[in-house]
Design a binder for these strands. Structure first.
Length: 806
RNA sequence: GGGCGGGUGGUGGAAUUGGUAUACACGACAGACUUAAAAUCUGUUGCCUAUAUAUGGCUUGCGGGUUCAAGUCCCGCCUCGCCCACCA
């Protein structure tokens, strides 16, 4: 009697795998398959969430390999970044040491998972060999005019002491530390992602991504069609431009609102209103974005100036209010209180005119935002909203008063960070030559290591004279280095291009290897990157495509989002809640195979869910069952050919089911089918009713379909079945459709849709035959005694339904 | 406020896309083994009524509809989760 000892088995095979270099990526793939997981941030521990990402992904990779694909399945580290820097400050360690230490321990843990991740294909974004190419990417963007410096309002996190991209501000708070983000006027570096807005939107259609993620990207890009309208300002040469999606309501525009940060505020404010306006601007300037949003009532102040509505030629007052955002459109709006809820509330509060121009609703109560025909709009009366939009835009265009305009909510990507632990921006400032890019041949601009941090957390680069002072690459004179580093999302926006050849020295990526492997066939990771990493990577890929570096415009063909593993209490795991599951503990006691199996069995992969130690034991029990089924000898008794045939049919059905379910990313039902089969096999083994050779063949097939799920134990079982070559080098078993087909089917007999009985018939029996059989059964059992059969519905291979009327 | 998903036994979840609802697993109960417990094994397990394996009834959040037939389609409502949000 052999007992399952995962510890011994896993150690044994890990050693063999390493010695035989089992998971080396083929250099010249014939059928390439790039199976990628989002690389982790080296925070210190591989937690169960990482396992939920890497283990099922590995099952998919192994499955592809057994199906004859050459699989590229690498794993590296997104090593630069704010959390590492903060952790280093807290511990008084240099950030590089802290990061190195974490990578070492995480790589060690990763080995235990039993993944076929190729350890030679390592990426660490904080190494100069990597970030010199991140800097190269910056220069490419710079030279194409897609990386630029601009002064403007930015999000500033006072706790982390850095600016943040729009994508990194969540509900007005810093994504990392949850501090309320302030608005500051600063000069920063941007990437022109907005130039790609339209393509980022339309190309989504070609991707096999979860609809949810596509929808989130669509919303984030936020395309809207409308018009730019130029309003004259009474007594001024300046024009006030507004963007509106409702040009049809132009006749109802009874006042204007400009954002407090609008450049025209100063010049159009009248002398009498000067102090009120200044007060208002000072107050709203002190507010964070979240304060502004939380304000229940809209506030504002009159500038004392008037604009002219080009449709009515009426003078309409210009107000300042912070419900108009400088960051969208032109930072100014035409207010149509009759047909916009916000404008309506503002008009009511300040007693401004409300003029209805779309029929319907009751504008004494609330704004009418629904449909209707135009009224009070002179020649445009009686048009529908859609007709009026087109005609009014045309009318404006013909008079030079405005034009059709498409707006996007997407902003350019702010990439500079006032932090130390990142790739330095390769720029120097020269008094004579101005902003000068570092020449490519001088890359990398090396980040000095072993830095101690000051008390206030200020970037040590600023106070590092050897780093800051340099020579101008153009005139050779004294110059100063840029001390900001790049957002870590720049590092991760191209890493997938380097994996095919991580040793490549001539460029950021090996073009030949990239052509072989890319785009990524399947990308697996969490949904939290929907509008961050996934959007940035698409943008950078398009940029590189446009400039001839790569031949594809989308990096990830298929995307799979795994759900989130919660603590046993159903809450998000956190140290403070004490509900964190440590995979090492479970691996140590039950083995990696059981942990992998449980993660895939607990529910649909996209859903995640709470870790349940009890249920986990159930999958461990199953591991034991399989182990004993095969490791302990089978002795044949009296052979029953019908059972033998049945066993063969069952294992072919199992193969079909597992094949289909893996392809559909339904691990849980694939495992359930294996459990069902094993339960059945246990009874056969007890009955001893099949020949030893039939048993042996069946068990081999079982081990093969189980191999991608539990890589260690299946090696052991495969060996036991007399095989010497690794199970992971075997071809995926083929099932025969002939064998999967049933000879007989159970036909259900219904009366008025309710199940009354069932009988067995040959597969493919005709409707007439089935009806006949059902009628005979009815004669015997008399289901229809309470009425008259008015109709009989026969669904072949399924059911017979008697429609009976009393 | 807008968008996208969900709601099935005591629990996690199945259900070939309109055709036997509750697969598989957990838990619970009963039994075997044991001095005892754990582990293991066997059996029972949607709910209700009941003396019930044999044509009892009910059941997929609630209410209505379409259909021979609805967890699945349509209409209305309740509810939970996620994402976005003063975007003009």
């Amino acid at each position: 009697m052999k007992n399952y000892n995962p510890k011994a088995i896993e150690a044994k095979w890990q050693k063999i795998w390493q010695e035989t270099d089992l998971y080396k990526t083929p250099e010249n793939p014939k059928k390439p398959f790039y199976n990628l997981v989002m690389f982790p941030y080296p925070s210190g521990d591989l937690h169960i969430g990482h396992w939920y990402n890497f283990a099922p992904a590995d099952t998919l990779g192994r499955f592809a390999r057994m199906q004859g694909y050459d699989v590229l399945q690498p794993l590296g580290y997104d090593a630069f970044g704010l959390p590492a820097e903060n952790a280093a400050i807290k511990r008084g360690l240099p950030a590089d040491e802290w990061t190195e230490k974490n990578i070492t321990s995480m790589s060690e843990q990763l080995r235990s998972l039993g993944g076929m991740y190729d350890q030679d294909k390592m990426i660490n974004t904080s190494q100069p060999e990597y970030y010199r190419w991140t800097q190269w990417l910056f220069l490419k963007l710079f030279h194409e005019g897609k990386a630029y410096q601009k002064e403007g309002l930015v999000n500033w996190c006072p706790n982390d002491r850095t600016v943040l991209a729009n994508e990194q501000v969540v509900n007005g708070c810093c994504e990392r530390c949850d501090t309320k983000v302030e608005r500051k006027n600063l000069k920063q570096w941007y990437f022109s992602i907005t130039d790609y807005a339209d393509r980022l939107l339309t190309d989504l259609d070609s991707l096999q991504w979860p609809e949810k993620i596509k929808e989130m990207q669509k919303n984030w890009i936020g395309k809207s069609k409308g018009a730019l309208i130029h309003f004259a300002i009474d007594g001024s040469q300046e024009k006030l431009d507004v963007y509106t999606t409702r040009p049809d309501t132009l006749f109802g525009a009874t006042f204007m609102i400009i954002a407090p940060e609008h450049p025209l505020v100063e010049s159009i404010t009248s002398v009498e209103q000067q102090s009120a306006v200044n007060d208002y601007i000072a107050k709203s300037g002190a507010k964070t974005d979240i304060d502004r949003m939380e304000a229940k009532e809209k506030t504002g102040v009159f500038t004392g100036s008037y604009a002219v509505n080009p449709a009515t030629n009426e003078q309409i007052p210009i107000w300042v209010s912070d419900y108009v955002l400088m960051g969208y459109g032109t930072g100014a709006i035409m207010a149509v209180p009759a047909h916009d809820e916000r404008d309506f509330a503002f008009a009511k509060k300040y007693g401004l005119e409300i003029k209805q121009v779309i029929e319907g609703g009751d504008i004494s109560e609330s704004a009418h935002v629904g449909s209707g025909k135009l009224i009070n709009s002179s020649e445009f009366d009686n048009l529908t909203i859609e007709e009026a939009k087109t005609k009014i835009i045309h009318w404006l265009e013909s008079r030079g008063l405005g034009e059709a305009k498409t707006e996007y909510r997407l902003r350019d990507w702010l990439i500079s960070r006032q932090r130390y632990w990142g790739a330095p921006i390769p720029i120097v400032y020269c008094d004579k030559c101005g902003v000068v890019p570092v020449p490519e041949k001088d890359l990398p601009v090396v980040l000095p290591l072993k830095q101690k941090f000051g008390k206030d957390g200020r970037s040590p680069l600023v106070d590092h004279p050897d780093f800051v002072s340099t020579h101008c690459p153009e005139c050779g004179g004294k110059a100063r280095r840029e001390t900001d580093t790049m957002d870590t999302f720049v590092d991760s926006s191209w890493y997938f291009l380097r994996y095919p050849n991580t040793q490549y020295k001539e460029g950021a990526f090996d073009p030949l290897a990239v052509e072989k492997w890319l785009p990524v066939n399947r990308y697996i990771g969490g949904a939290e990157h929907a509008v961050l990493h996934l959007l940035y990577s698409r943008f950078i890929t398009k940029f590189l495509y446009d400039h001839g570096h790569i031949s594809f415009a989308e990096p990830f063909t298929t995307l799979i989002n795994q759900g989130m593993i919660l603590g046993p209490d159903g809450n998000k795991m956190s140290k403070s809640k004490g509900n964190v599951i440590d995979p090492d503990e479970y691996v140590g006691q039950y083995g990696a195979d059981s942990v992998r199996l449980y993660l895939m069995f607990m529910g649909p992969y996209e859903d995640g869910g709470p870790w349940d130690p009890k249920r986990f034991e159930g999958t461990y029990r199953f591991m034991n069952k399989v182990y004993e089924l095969i490791m302990n000898p089978y002795t044949e008794g009296e052979i029953d050919t019908i059972t033998e045939a049945e066993l063969e049919v069952r294992v072919h059905k199992l193969t079909k089911k597992v094949t289909q379910d893996i392809n559909a990313i339904k691990f849980n039902t694939a495992i359930a089918a294996m459990m069902e089969f094993v339960n059945y096999a246990v009874t056969i083994k007890k009955a001893r009713s099949v020949s030893s050779s039939a048993w042996q063949q069946t068990m081999k097939m079982l081990v093969l379909v189980f191999a991608p799920f539990a890589p260690y134990v299946t090696e052991e079982l495969w060996e036991q079945l007399g095989e010497s070559e690794s199970v992971h080098l075997q071809a995926w078993p083929k099932y025969s459709e002939d064998k999967v087909k049933d000879d007989v089917v159970t036909i259900v007999v219904q009366v008025n849709g309710k199940v009354r009985s069932e009988f067995v018939a040959t597969t493919g029996s005709s409707q007439a035959e089935l009806e006949e059989m059902a009628r005979n059964l009815d004669k015997e059992k008399n289901f229809t005694k309470n009425g008259e059969i008015v109709k009989v519905i026969v669904v072949p291979n399924r059911l017979v339904n008697f429609v009976v009327k009393p």
